[in-house]
Design a binder for these strands. Structure first.
Length: 314
DNA sequence: TCTATTTGACCGGT
DNA sequence: ACCGGTCAAATAGA
């Protein structure tokens, strides 16, 4: 039985049970069975995702750590990075990076004006090119850090009269505009969060299917909260650095999680007892500190529908 | 206060 | 050593 079939079976079983008029004992048993099926299903998915994560790795684990840290304050962790490196860093912390494998070349265009391709780009460099009249401009996707999008483009004016601009694209966009596509914003199954007595519904454990964001910025979360009606999900989890500062603020800002069937709540207070309240969540966050979230964001960035996602797995 | 751009330093590949 | 791609502090802008 494929994973998708398991999921559908569980859904059908629930429907049958809700309509049936069997005695309470057998019904309770059947409901319990349905829940076990779903739990098993979810765990299986989690394992599969864990496997996918490793397949997605394109860089070394150390590189992942370095990349992830750069999303926060690279200058704060210079000492860690430099340790074991043959090269010392400069005073201001610049240049202490390892070059990632180049994004694959996609295509190139010559146009009389600069192309407006509709994507959000952020300029990160400009370089004088040998034997070229005009400098080359470097752009990366605005969502590089919060969605892991690796798209890059170079733009260079090739001639003045008539004007001609050459645009080269590297990599493809894996990002989503959260405002335009809130309904298809996410899909990552992650390790289930632990039930919390005073905040989560009693039936929390009925659905241990948890979706989570990876590397989602505070700003992105605000957008999702404003869109809360149809946004499939938005929660917690896979962000954070070694001191947990980011995952705490993340959780604090994300006071709700919603899906078609369920709604979960997370505490909004900044008590330091978060770890005690959310053992599983904390465990997941700890794990993410060692380089997993970068790959998770790739899955996230794919932004598939849940069923589509399952079909790809099965 | 927060995000985007500018710009010279720095890096890796050749 | 050179070249071009990237980083990140300083700066500009909203």
């Amino acid at each position: 039985m494929s994973l998708l079939e398991v999921r559908n079976s569980r859904s059908q079983l629930r429907q049958i049970l809700s309509k049936s008029s069997g005695n309470d004992l057998s019904k309770t048993y059947a409901v319990d069975l349905a829940d076990k099926i779903e739990k098993s299903f979810t765990n299986t998915i989690s394992v599969l995702i864990a496997g996918s994560i490793h397949e997605l790795d394109e860089v070394s684990p150390m590189q992942q750590i370095t990349d992830k840290k750069s999303k926060f304050q690279k200058s704060d962790i210079v000492d860690v990075e430099v340790q074991g490196s043959k090269r010392a860093t400069t005073e201001d912390g610049r240049g202490c990076y390892k070059r990632r494998r180049d994004s694959p070349f996609s295509w190139e265009r010559d146009t009389p004006t600069v192309i407006d391709d509709g994507h959000a780009w952020r300029k990160y460099g400009q370089k004088v090119i040998l034997n070229a009249k005009h400098p080359r401009h470097y752009y990366r996707c605005t969502y590089k850090f919060d969605q892991g999008c690796k798209a890059i483009k170079h733009v260079q004016k090739m001639q003045d009269d008539p004007p001609l601009y050459r645009t080269a694209y590297y990599g493809h966009h894996t990002c989503r505009d959260l405002l335009k596509h809130p309904e298809e914003t996410l899909i990552i199954l992650d390790s289930p969060l632990a039930p919390v007595d005073n905040q989560c519904p009693n039936n929390y454990s009925d659905s241990s299917t948890i979706f989570s964001f990876a590397n989602t910025t505070n700003n992105s979360m605000k957008l999702l909260q404003e869109q809360k009606t149809e946004t499939k999900l938005g929660i917690a989890g896979i962000v954070g650095d070694h001191d947990h500062h980011h995952h705490k603020s993340f959780i604090n800002q994300t006071s709700f999680v919603s899906s078609a069937d369920h709604e979960y709540f997370l505490p909004t207070d900044d008590s330091s007892s978060n770890s005690a309240s959310y053992p599983s969540a904390s465990a997941a966050l700890d794990e993410s500190s060692f380089g997993y979230d970068d790959s998770l964001s790739n899955l996230f960035a794919g932004s598939m529908d849940f069923d589509e996602f399952l079909q790809q797995l099965s």
